[in-house]
Nucleic acid binder design. Sequence first.
DNA 1: TTTTATTGATTGATGAGTCAATCAAAAATA
DNA 2: TATTTTTGATTGACTCATCAATCAATAAAA
Lengths: 201, 201
Amino acid sequence: MPKIGMEPVRRKALVDAALRVIGDQGTLSVTMSDIARTAGVSPALAHHYFGSKDQLLIATIRSLLAQLRDDAVAALQAAKTPRERLSALIRVSFRAEQFAPETIAAWLAFYSEAQRSEDVRRLLVIYARRLRSNLLASLRPLSTADDAERIAEGAAAMIDGLYIRQSLKSAPISIEASIALTEDYVNAHLRVGDGESYPSP
Amino acid sequence: MPKIGMEPVRRKALVDAALRVIGDQGTLSVTMSDIARTAGVSPALAHHYFGSKDQLLIATIRSLLAQLRDDAVAALQAAKTPRERLSALIRVSFRAEQFAPETIAAWLAFYSEAQRSEDVRRLLVIYARRLRSNLLASLRPLSTADDAERIAEGAAAMIDGLYIRQSLKSAPISIEASIALTEDYVNAHLRVGDGESYPSP
DNA sequence: TTTTATTGATTGATGAGTCAATCAAAAATA
DNA sequence: TATTTTTGATTGACTCATCAATCAATAAAA
């Protein structure tokens, strides 16, 4: 069995497994055994490569964040105008995989963990800041600086809120409806803030 | 010591203690010992009255929900017009105590638990439904049925989103700013939806 | 042979839940 | 009223299960 150069392979497998198990169980209180079993290795090996459960968890969040960032970068590059970039950001936030119940459950678990772990908190703050600054950059050419701040804040809140509401799975909103709600929000506020006048229909 | 009629007193003390400990530690993974100590009794007594940790947790969420409902009822009674009731609902959601870090941490923990426990999920769904239907009732006299649904959905999401964003404690938004953002949202949409025409300033 | 990969077995800590025993108020009885 | 019985309140001590972390041993490359 022991082939050389297994470390990166195993690390990735364990991180992916961790995300899956956390998503399935909806908590960070999963056992190293669960994760290792899902990754197809022994619990001891997980400790060997990550040192501790905490480290593995941190690596898992990092990986989720990195993926999100890459998605955003790709989406932003494809968009040309500020307004298009704005829509791209909204769409990325509601990507199908992000909307999967397991992904939402995992995010929720991370948010909860952030109340205890400074490391986790710091990582999530990075996500929040990035979303905010991305939105802001797209909004600034479209409105006053003040309005841009407000709209970015509101849009970010709405995105996170639609997200968390999915987690209860009662009257789940579709991806399209979520996008539409957020788009409506920015549209309405860009219109209102636009030179203090309301365009006629 | 043993006076008669201690049961309701102890139950309340334990539920209150549970909420405090959960809020402080930001997780439901608190020990019965922690809770019991905070309530000033032995862990065995907590089991005696609640049977299991789960039961105590359920009772705790129930208590939080009941308090929230009472607040909403009181606020709604004080408001006369639909528009006033709408603002009252928004204000209640951002009440100072609801905005306290420990309360937010507790809510987050409950949401996370809802991924695992059907009982907890059911309770949180009740909260979500209530907020939605309260918003809807206030919105219906103010717009078309379709718009009312949309705005209620959006406002609820924004409220929850502003809430969860507080939990990261980076760039915390003030209560007033949160209320203002939500009010702006409903204002903008009530305006736009109002007979398909945009009023001039 | 040295290094890397891998695991089974073990340990130590923690925490939920149980239980038998104690204590004191209240109710019943003398 | 005084004494006994009953019952609710309460806990210390214990059990049992779980889990993170460790380690010594094995196997296969290099």
